[in-house]
Write a protein that binds this DNA or RNA. Structure first.
Length: 685
RNA sequence: CGCGGGAUGGAGCAGCCCGGUAGCUCGCGAGGCUCAUAACCUCGAGGUCGUCAGUUCAAAUCUGGCUCCCGCAACCA
């Protein structure tokens, strides 16, 4: 056994939303690895924290009419509840909004200054005069100054890969208020990452810290060009930490978020009288980050660059996983497949999900699919039918007898299982959990075959065979126990139950290497239920309903029993600022008839519509409703269009208007209809 | 030629790095058992491993071309 000391982190969940099953892929994957390491006897610290800063939190708090600290406290409590419900055993769960984090930010900041990595220059930034705030990159959209692609975010063009500042955008619009931002100058601070280029090249390409796909990706995408300066400050107002040597400037949320990994460790150290340096400034400690593929770039370039400059340990490995799809498709709220952690827990046992994910997870970045039929199958046949069944088949026979004093001859089954343990351990170590689960199920199959051949139920009826019966049960229960050890990282409760049943706690991986003898046996109780299909349906149904808001306001006592629409939609897209009737009349909404709806073969979202405003007045409109409506459904129907919208050149042609619809997009688009009697050309007032 | 991943019996996957009897789970068919949460055991049907070519005594596995699919990214005025 190696003598390693490990520090493990999972990505910090953002305090702007609840945990759903997609997030849990990561936390379960990480938790399994941590539990595995601990079971192997390796000192291992698992830290995480809520990511609490940034414009999004500020805006949301404003919308909910309360302070940021209230918002993040509530969300943190909800997150911790969800994690606990799934048995995610953090050693410490902190918050980026902590004094420790502030101290560390200061410290690291000074190091960056000392290393001459910080540049300061004035930035013309867009300011939303309505919302009263500077606009983060993702809150501004406009036309790319380089290639004139429209609808680009504020920091870079997805079309031509040009990078620029939001003020360079042509026709910028605030996505917060819809207002036209004004340009305001403010001093910004940058980390000059290019100065770390050689180091990052070496670190990412060494083959020791990243999956090969990731290293290739970075090589092809970023390392070939000079690395951009990273703008790490935001002018007030901003919810975050004010930068000590730069008044009215705050660290950008992405600056202090990963430092939260260290801060959370520090908080744990303080509680446990340990030195932070032993964990973050010692080459004896291996640091492992687990993240999703969406934040790859950040964790593999900026973060190592900062750590290096500030003299902290670099991650030994950044483990990157894919996303979760449900029944082969992206999770969708409307389809009822974006399951919130709390919703799942109301209906189903967390052990199911832990095992299911384990059986699907490999070391690659592939997305994993949650197929609900397969989910039920795997739990029922693998867990209940194979593993648990071993105990069910023998524990009651063995109850009055206890385990034999000596481990009987079993034809080498236990020894073979013990040997297989090494391969299983290797699979866990390499994050190839699906392989580990396959190996474990092979052992379970062999054990069940042994039960079959030994027929304890026959032995039981023969008074002269009681010794043999005890032997058979001793063997089977030991095989079961061995499997429980191997499954302990995935199913901690099961291993605990096994310990109670056989009256010997499972505490170390090596418990799988020696048979247990001579103990008595507790009364057998069912260890795990099969999945009731109606529970799955109940979860889907509940998920279809709107996702609950953080703090549901208590309904007024005398409120009439009306339809209880949730406030979620409004929260997703807040009300625009008040406009005058003059503003409104600028928009000319007209009834139009769809004469022709045509497929645009290369387009994924668009359909080409020819609409009539009556008479000869027809025009072409492209609408992003391909996934929501069939061509037949559209043909001939009346819609409401924005008729005086500036025509827009799109990839497939000129669009001369906009069809009105509600909904977030994708399959969730709902066209505005109009009561019968209306005719094309009539204006909507 | 935007980046990455994939195509293996009805479904989902393993095997590919390190060429040499194509394996697992579910489903399906037949039989067995009755201890177990309608669980378990045995046997069987079903695959020219996307396609074309190359290397080789030998290719699912190596090399190249092609087709299709999925993420990300894009076209949701």
């Amino acid at each position: 056994m190696t003598d390693r000391k490990l520090l493990v982190t999972a990505a910090l969940p953002y305090a702007n939303g609840h945990i759903h099953l997609g997030h849990l892929v990561e936390y379960i994957q990480t938790d399994i690895w941590v539990r595995f390491q601990k079971l192997r006897g390796n000192p291992c610290l698992f830290v995480c924290a809520d990511d609490t800063h940034g414009t999004a939190i500020m805006i949301r708090a404003r919308q909910e009419g309360r302070s940021e600290s209230e918002l993040i406290a509530d969300m943190q409590a909800a997150h911790e509840r969800d994690f606990a419900g799934f048995g995610i055993a953090f050693d410490h769960y902190g918050s980026t909004n902590s004094t420790e984090n502030y101290e560390l930010c200061k410290d690291i900041w000074q190091s960056l200054r000392a290393a001459d990595l910080i540049a300061e220059r004035d930035v013309e930034q867009l300011f939303d005069p309505v919302a009263g705030t500077f606009l983060a990159d993702r809150f501004v959209k406009g036309t790319c100054p380089k290639c004139n692609s429209e609808d680009q975010y504020g920091d870079n063009c997805s079309k031509c890969s040009a990078t620029y500042s939001p003020t360079d955008l042509i026709n910028p619009v605030s996505t917060l208020s819809g207002a036209t931002p004004v340009t305001k100058s403010a001093s910004h601070l940058f980390v000059q990452l290019e100065k770390q280029h050689a180091f990052l090249e070496e670190w990412t390409q060494s083959g020791e810290h990243l999956q090969s796909e990731v290293a290739n990706y970075l090589k092809g995408h970023f390392l070939g060009n000079p690395l951009r300066d990273w703008d790490v400050s935001r002018p007030a107002p901003y919810f975050g930490f004010e930068i000590p040597d730069s008044q009215n400037n705050f660290w950008y949320v992405w600056f202090d978020a990963p430092i939260g990994y260290i801060a959370s460790t520090w908080q744990w150290c303080k509680k446990n009288n340990e030195s932070l340096a032993d964990w973050w400034r010692s080459d004896k400690t291996e640091i492992h980050h687990f993240i999703g593929k969406d934040i790859t770039h950040f964790h593999t370039s900026f973060w190592p660059g900062v750590l290096k400059a500030a003299g902290y340990s670099l991650p030994k490995f950044v483990h990157i996983h894919g996303f979760l799809t449900v029944n082969g498709e992206k999770m969708s709220k409307r389809g009822g497949t974006q399951f919130q952690a709390s919703t799942y827990l109301k209906h189903l046992d967390p052990a199911y999900l832990r095992y299911y994910y384990a059986s699907k997870l490999g070391p690659k970045l592939d997305d994993i699919d949650m197929n609900l039929t397969e989910f039920v199958n795997k739990i029922d046949s693998d867990l209940v039918g194979k593993v648990i069944n071993l105990a069910s088949r023998t524990a009651r026979f063995a109850e009055p007898l206890g385990l034999s004093i000596e481990y009987p001859h079993d034809g080498g089954l236990f020894a073979a299982g013990a040997v297989a343990g090494e391969r299983i351990a290797q699979a866990y170590e390499q994050l190839d959990y699906s392989r580990a689960m396959r190996l474990i199920m092979e052992l379970a199959d062999q054990a069940n075959a042994f039960v079959e051949n030994s027929a304890p139920w026959t032995l039981k009826k023969d008074a002269t065979q009681q010794v043999r019966l005890q032997e058979v049960c001793t063997i089977v229960l030991n095989l079961f126990r061995q499997l429980c050890v191997y499954l302990a990282p995935v199913l901690p409760r099961l291993s605990q139950q096994c310990g109670q049943l056989l009256q010997a706690e499972l505490i170390h991986w090596d418990d799988s290497q020696t048979p247990l003898v001579g103990t008595s046996i507790s009364k057998f109780e069912h260890l795990l239920q099969r999945i009731a299909p109606e529970k799955i349906q109940a979860m889907i149904d509940e998920s279809k309903e709107a996702v609950p808001v953080v703090e549901p306001t208590a309904p007024a006592a005398s409120a009439p029993a009306a339809v209880a629409d949730s406030g979620d939609a409004l929260l997703q897209e807040p009300l625009a600022p008040t406009c005058t009737i003059e503003d409104f009349t600028k928009v000319d909404l007209r009834v139009a008839r769809i004469l022709k709806a045509e497929e645009v073969p290369e387009a994924k979202k668009l359909v080409k519509l020819t609409v009539s405003l009556g008479g000869d007045n027809t025009r072409t409109v492209f609408a992003g409703i391909k996934a929501a409506y069939t061509l037949e459904q559209l043909q001939g129907r009346l819609v409401v269009i924005v008729a005086n919208l500036l025509p827009r050149q799109m990839k497939f042609g000129l669009s001369e208007g906009m069809v009105t619809a509600a909904g977030p997009g994708g399959t969730e688009v709902f066209l505005l209809g109009i009561d019968s009697g209306a005719v094309p050309g009539q204006r909507v007032h």
